[in-house]
Each structure stands twice: as structure tokens, then as C-alpha cells.
Write a protein that binds this DNA or RNA. Structure first.
Lengths: 215, 215, 215, 215
DNA sequence: AATGAATGAGGTTTCATTCAT
DNA sequence: TATGAATGAAACCTCATTCAT
């Protein structure tokens, strides 16, 4: 899986690049619809308007397109917006902004996120990738929590590592339930607001910060 | 999927029942190792020490053993422990007890839970079952939250439905991260304690209740 | 195929003979319904109210029951009634009687005859049996024709062997078309009458004999 | 069954069409040798000099090649020669010509005819096709007989429908006995002559017509 | 490169036959 | 003998991958 870069050299012909793009787009469509396992290369090629065999002019196999699709996803998803760690505004506002950015992206790419969830359970190679990414995110959170605790702005009895995982889990899994499983029709603002409030409450970030967040 | 009872009549002979059990056990092993999609009936039969064709004396196909395995899982998992709704002790203690029960079961059946997660992404039929189960759990939580809000014991500004999903997500996903993905080696007690504390904080359950919980 | 006698020794137990009979009856039913090729031993056993494996206490396999079924058929079918060769009455009356006997039997055992037809195309061994039987019948006819020709009672230019085959074919195939394929709803008497007339006409059996036949 | 046209799209490449033809030829061979039921796709592919899986590039399954084979047969067989109904020569000559055409074709395609007979007993779909064809033929005969009766040239006491079936049966079944079962080594001319004579006799077509036929 | 047929490993399923109880 | 599970040889079909044009 994990090779992000193109697998079969750089395309020489003008239309080759276009066909490669079509295949990636088609693969994404098919993956989202059928899941990685059941997706057939035939279908991908057909969806791209190409002959079956042409697929292999561009990719070595299913794993290989998957890599390309993931690369594309990365481009789309990884504009994390205002990082939590970014200074310059108050904590609650930053949390809210991060949640908003995350949830809006999740909603936009819901079917992709579903695919990612599936891949993580099916493909070990991909699971590892995702773990790395999550770990980075969680570590950032853990650092934030430690900082807040040190400054007396967060419940000092919370284990910062576990808390970081738990909070991330809460947000990401609620997004999954809402946008992928279609849990209930929820207004996005209400969702952001509630999750932010839960997050802030959970850490016991003091009144001062919260009030400012509401402003 | 998901019919608990035997699929091809009840076995008449004593050793037949034994072989059926072996097949279920083997299937579970193989499912846990290879995932539902990649599991091969051949491997299941072999793992059960039976000939390939014997599988079909007991099950109609992969879906069918899956049902049997799920039935077994249900038997193992569905000892729900102290329900949140059960009265008679203070709220925080009840939350902690529920968390403990849930996490201990999760740890014991970690590989099964991994399987369930995978099945939910791969098998629509099973996804629906899981949704039903989760919904029941979440609804119970939502009711609890509403009660607490009514009595002035929980942050009144939280949307109870979203909160219920978020809290459930937090606990279950953290369990998954810890026991399935092996996030970090975490002490169970510390995990329970942190999750309980986060939960209580998040709802802003008042000091009185919390202090009792610590006792 | 062609072993008519019991294949696995003489039954010792009282109920054994009964079960054997049940199997033969069941086999016949299943053969008639599904055809020889698609008939499954499981179904035969089940139809006989016996366990699958019990079949093999009585027969070596499908071929073996087939033999038994055919034996039974023989008992039912081979009462050819007034043979053509039997003297003592006029020729036309004898032909009509033979036709009547044949067609009535055919009608009664239509589904069996269908089975026989099928077996003849599918099973070489059985084809040979049927050929032998038909040959006997045809030879008798050929002799009759020769006799009639010698006495000046039949068209002398007909090849007696070919004619014998052709006439037999005409009768048996018309019976098949009528009773098996359900060609048209035809009154039995009209059928007998027409076939007899065609037969007599074809041989050019003289007026004298024919008039007597109508009486 | 029995769709004449290609089943999986028209082949685009020249050699593909060639392989398809090879498969049809091979299937025909194998069907003729082993019968439809026992024919194995593996054998067909092998006989065509192709890999097992290639079969499925061209046909969806056994039924599907069968259709192609039947289409081919149709092309070969359905040059019915001089129709009985065609005017312009005397009746007996026309009957003889029809018999000659039919029997010569039958002899040329004996193994195919055997296959057709078998298919009719095994495959309901094909049985229906054959019935349709035969019905057309028989109806034509019935009309001829009625015409002859009306003009006083045929035994008026014969039921024309039954007679049509009986006569057709006589010819086709005798052909089967001779060429498929190899009843006896018979000279073709003698066979034609005898069948024609029987046919004419059976209907009692008057001397005038017959004499001309002999000329 | 593009095409689409050819390949063949891999999996599923069926069912006659064997065999321990 | 009766039973019904166990066995394993066939057969079918799918689909990723190769390859000639």
C-alpha cells in the first residue's frame, strides 16, 4: 500500500497523464461504493472509460491505485486548519476552530472517511499509516493538555495521554456516526458546539477561558 | 447473517455436535486472524481438523458460520453488567461501574471486538445489527443525561442526544485503541479512572456526586 | 446397469425387504420427476423415508437401483397381450389388439416411458437393453410381414426389415408424442383406430382382412 | 438456451472470433461424444486448445455454448430442401424428394441428431424449441393430408392430425434407428424407397399417382 | 500506451460413497 | 441393518495479471 508516489514511471504521452487521473478518480468512486475488498479492477477501468488491461499501464495492482487515491485524499484532507497548538488566540476558540475544520472536512468527505475506516480494518499496511497520522494528532493534543495542566487550566488528575486519545476518539467517532452511519440528522453548528463544550468541560478548562470562547 | 440458531438442523449424533463446535471455534480463530473476507472455508475446515467438504454438513457457507460465531460472541459479551440506569447508588459510582464492566469485557474479548469492527465495515447485515445494539445503549445514556439535566446535575446546555453519542464513542473507541490497536500499554484502573473522570467532567456533574464517587 | 437381480445379497431381516421395496418405489418416483441424471441418492433415500446411508445397504449405487426399477417396469409392461404372431384370429384384428394393448400400457405408464426414452439417450448400457427388446419385437413383425407377403396378403415390394422398423417406430413414437409430450388431447380409440388403419394400409393388407377387422 | 447470437458481446479481435469458433466446434464434439450432461467445460476448453478460464471470456456457461452449437446446427440443418407443399410435380414424387432430403441430411449429421434427441429429453428449454419445429412440420403434413382427402386422393377415414404425427414419427424415428442406433446397414435408396412406399400406401394414395412415382 | 483476450490459480459447492456407532 | 456424519473428488466460476497486436 503505502507507496504514495507514482508506481510506473512518469507518463510520456500527453493523454497518459489524463488517463491516470481518470483511473484514480474512478478507483476512488468504486472504492467508496464497493469497499476496497470487493472493488474489481475491471470496474475501475470501466468507470474510467478505459480498457481492462490499460489499468496495468499505470498501476501495478489494486494496492497501487489505493496508494494514489490515498495521496489524493491526503491533499484534500490534510489542511488541518488552525492547529490546536497555534498560539495567539484563546484555548476554547482554538478548540472550536479545530473541531469546525475537522467536522466540515469530515462531512465533505464522508464516503472517503468510510473507506478509510474500512481500510484500517482490512489492510494492515494502511492501518499502520493511519496509526502514524493519528499518533501525531494525539501527541499534539497530549502536549496541549500537559501545558494546560501545568498552567492550572486543566483538571490535573487526568492522565494526559489517555485523555488525548479519549478526546480524539470522541470527536472522530462522533463524526463517523453522524456523517457515515447517518446516525441522526444533526445541525453542524449544534454538533460543533456540543463537542466543543464536552471537550472543554472534560478538561475542566476554567470559566474565564470558556466565557471568552462563547464571545 | 446473525441468526443464532443452527443452520442445518440440529445434529443428531454426539460427535457431530462436537465437530460443529470445532468448526465454529476454528471459524472464529480464522476470522480473527484473516478477517471475514480473506478467511477461506478450507482453512476453517483444516483448523477444525475436518475434511473440506464436512464444513457443508454443518453450514451453508461463510455467512452461515459467521452467524454461529456471532451467536457465540453474543453469549459471551452480553452480560451487560451493572446498567447505568440501575438505581440504588450514586451516579458517578454507577458510571464507573459501567465503564469497568465494559472495559474488562473489551479487554477479555479484544480480538473479537476487532472482528466485530471489521464486520461492521464489510457486512451490511451485520452493520445493521450493531447499529441496533449501539442505539439501545445510546438511548439509555441520553435518558440518563436528560434526567441529570432536569435535576440540575448536568450541564443544561449540552444536547443530550449528541452528548450520548459522543460519550459512548469516547469510551468504545478508546477501548478499541487500547486493546485492539494496542495504543499504549495502559493500566486498566488508570484507564477506567480517566474515562470516568472525563465523562463526569464533560457532563459537569456537580462536586457532591463526584466526591461520593471517589469514596 | 443391466443387472436385474438384487445386488447386495438376500435380505436377512424382515423389515429389510420392505425398505428395499420402498427404495425402489422412491427411486422410480424421483427418476420420473428429475430424470436419471439429476436424481440424487439423497432424494431417493428421503423419499423412501430412510437415512441417506441406508441406501447403500441395498444398492451399490444409482445404476443399481435403476436396474431394480427397470425390473419392476418389466413386470408391469411386458404383458404384451395378444401377440401379433398368435394365430387363430384374422390379421387386422390381431394388429388392432396389439396396438390397443401397447397404447393402453403406454398411457398408464407414460412417465416411465419418458424415463426410458431419456435413459436410452443417456446411458449406453441401458440403450443396449432397450435395443435388444426392440429387436425382438421388430423381428417378430418382420416375420409376420414376410408371411403376409408370401401369402399374397401384403405389398410384396416392401423390404420386410425396414418396414418392421418403420411400423414399430410409427406406433411407439406416436405414443410418445401423445402421452409423454402431450401432443394433443386425443381420444384413445381414435388413436388406436387411426394407427391400425395406417398400419394395414401401409402393408396393403387386402380388403377381405380389413373388412373383418372393422366388424 | 437456444439464443443464436453471441452471448458475451461481439469479439473485437480477429483471433478472438477464431477462438470462439474453436470453442463452439469443441463443444459440439464433446457434446456429441459425452452428451450434454456429462460434458465438462474443462474438456471443451482443452479440446479447443484453450485455457480453462478462457471459456468464460466467450460464454457464460454450458447453457450458453449449447445455444451457440444449436445455432450452428440450425444453419446446417435448416435447408429443408423441396417442401412437401411445393406444387409443380406429382404428390408421390414430392414425398419421395422430401424423404430423400430429410434422410440424407440425417445421415450426414447423425451424431448431431443424436445430440438433439438427447437434449430434448434433458433440457426442457430445448424440448420446447424442438416441439415448435416439429409442430410446424406436422401441421404442413396435416394440411397436405386434408387436401388429398378432399380431392379423393387419400383414405378419407384417416384422422389427418394423428396421421400427420404418425407419418412424421415413422420417418424420423426410422432415420434415428438407422443412422444413430445403427440398426442395420441399410442402403439409403432402399430406405427411401420403402419409407416412401409405406407413406403412400398408408394414405392410400391412388394407383395413378403411385405409378407416376415409380417412373 | 491502449486494447481486450488468454491465462490459471484460487475459491466455492455438490454429492456419491465410506464408516463408526 | 440403520443411521447420518465424514470424506474428497469433481466441477464450476471469478478475476488479477499477462501479453500479443
Amino acid at each position: 500500500v503505502a507507496t504514495t508516489d507514482a508506481s510506473i514511471g512518469v507518463p510520456r504521452r500527453a493523454d497518459a497523464a489524463r488517463n491516470r487521473d481518470r483511473l484514480v478518480a474512478a478507483a476512488r468512486e468504486v472504492f467508496e461504493r464497493d469497499g476496497y475488498v470487493r472493488a474489481r479492477i475491471t470496474d475501475i477501468s470501466a468507470a474510467a472509460g478505459l480498457a481492462h488491461g490499460s489499468f496495468f499501464s499505470h498501476f501495478r495492482g489494486k494496492d497501487d491505485v489505493l496508494a494514489a487515491v490515498l495521496g489524493q485524499i491526503e491533499d484534500e484532507m490534510l489542511h488541518p486548519g488552525p492547529s490546536l497548538a497555534s498560539p495567539g488566540s484563546n484555548v476554547v476558540a482554538r478548540i472550536e476552530a479545530a473541531n469546525r475544520a475537522y467536522l466540515e472536512a469530515y462531512q465533505r468527505h464522508a464516503s472517503l472517511m468510510a473507506l478509510l475506516e474500512q481500510l484500517a480494518t482490512v489492510d494492515d499496511a494502511f492501518l499502520r499509516i493511519r496509526l502514524e497520522r493519528t499518533r501525531a494528532f494525539v501527541d499534539r493534543n497530549a502536549r496541549l493538555i500537559r501545558d494546560l495542566q501545568r498552567d492550572g487550566h486543566a483538571d490535573p488528575e487526568l492522565d494526559p495521554d489517555i485523555t488525548a486519545v479519549a478526546i480524539s476518539s470522541m470527536v472522530s467517532r462522533t463524526a463517523y456516526a453522524t456523517f457515515v452511519l447517518g446516525w441522526k440528522s444533526v445541525e453542524l453548528d449544534r454538533l460543533i458546539d456540543t463537542l466543543t463544550r464536552l471537550w472543554v468541560n472534560a478538561l475542566r478548562i476554567p470559566r474565564a477561558a470558556r466565557r471568552r470562547a462563547n464571545t
